[in-house]
Design a protein around this nucleic acid. Structure first.
Lengths: 227, 227
DNA sequence: GAGGTTAGAGTCAGTCGCTGACACTTGACA
DNA sequence: TGTCAAGTGTCAGCGACTGACTCTAACCTC
């Protein structure tokens, strides 16, 4: 089956016209969410490498095969929430006022999406679990690796949005990619610094983000001594 | 055994005092180099994921266990050369004149180490094979992920060197990390652009590196329209 | 409401990356 | 020359993941 975003059957069953997802669909989603919660809970308590897929499926009481039908791999579960957040960020960036410069828009979008992160997430897993997951990713080498790759895939996407906003050609003008690369570099340091600290709150990472972005300009000045 | 960098036995056997590595050591090194060459050759011809460890050891005619005694994993073989290059870069950075600013020093070091890359490498594998390996890493998702993680580990190290050079405190001043993050971001875009092109030469990547670094300043200007 | 269709889940067997334990061979050194 | 141990081989086993097949129950049609 070509599963659509939400798998909604539109205007089919019954006389009501548009209905919600059917029982089958709901059951499927419930299984997926249960697997996800169980996985993240296990990862954050006993560690990612120390958690086997068998343990996850045992906690939800489904077969291993079912796990691999919902997720391409063990890793994918760790980034399921991350994916939602990133989607939100890109949308926020597209909606920034057109008169903002590239860096101002990026800054606005990232801070804005931190503010709104709670709502989208809580529907699937507790926000606190998501935050612990983020920290776990930062401190687990194999996940950190995937995290980095995902972030450069994001960079390409974001560079496209910036190029569009600024009306420049991505193929010939290196500035969108360079600006986004520098910005993302700072974002990554931010995440790492936050993960290394004790304060796991959303407010904390928001504050760190702001501080580090403020330093981007000065850091690139040629001589740091005469600031 | 605690294998040292080169495993040289100093001032032991015979009357000559300082001698080269013994027969055992040489044999070991030969096995390792053979495994490395075979692995990279297979990776670059039939693809990383499509190459099994069994195929590599078969090509060299040793047991699988031997492979895993020389390399922590299949991935490690893909980055063995990379490691040499990075070592060289850090050394080059430390040796930059003290009056250069942070970005100038980074730029000088990276361009300088591209120039010198050939010699260190050719001793183990043909430079052309190394270049193809680099391209393969860029185009293989799982390797790209590891590559990214390695590069942020490098960032931390480089930030330390920069902080030292500039006489600032890494613990309280975010500028070293921010500058290095921005610089590394650009370096990564550079590698990706090079990998996507057709020209696999060292000259090519050197030229791209220079071009992109030139754009770092302008790209961070607030308004691109009035440059 | 009966009956055919099919998506989702289970079972099983097998591949690949990787590790621990143990035995063997052969350089290294006294 | 004999002892020691580094480097290798063999074997058994774990964990992630896949393909092929079967079964169940939600579904859609009539």
């Amino acid at each position: 089956m070509v599963s659509r975003q939400n798998g909604w059957e539109i205007g089919r069953n019954g006389v009501q016209g548009v209905t919600g997802p059917g029982l089958r669909e709901r059951k499927k989603q419930r299984t997926r969410d249960a697997l996800l919660r169980a996985a993240l809970e296990l990862f954050t308590t006993k560690g990612y490498e120390e958690t086997t897929v068998d343990e996850i499926v045992e906690a939800v009481d489904v077969s291993q095969r079912t796990f691999f039908r919902h997720f391409a791999g063990k890793q994918e579960t760790a980034f399921a929430m991350q994916e939602m957040v990133e989607e939100r960020f890109v949308r926020a960036l597209r909606e920034r006022p057109a008169d903002e410069g590239p860096l101002a828009a990026l800054r606005g979008a990232v801070l804005g999406s931190w503010d709104a992160v709670g709502e989208s997430i809580e529907a699937v897993v507790p926000v606190e679990l998501h935050m612990r997951t983020y920290q776990m990713i930062e401190s687990t080498p194999s996940l950190l690796a995937v995290h980095m790759r995902r972030s450069i895939e994001m960079e390409e996407q974001i560079a496209g949005v910036i190029a569009e906003r600024e009306g420049v050609d991505l193929a010939t003008d290196p500035r969108p990619r360079v600006a986004v690369a520098a910005f993302s570099g700072v974002m990554r340091v931010t995440g790492r610094m936050w993960g290394a600290g004790e304060d796991i709150s959303v407010e904390s990472i928001r504050a760190i983000t702001e501080t580090y972005l403020d330093h981007l300009g000065p850091a690139l000045a040629e001589d740091w001594r005469e600031r």
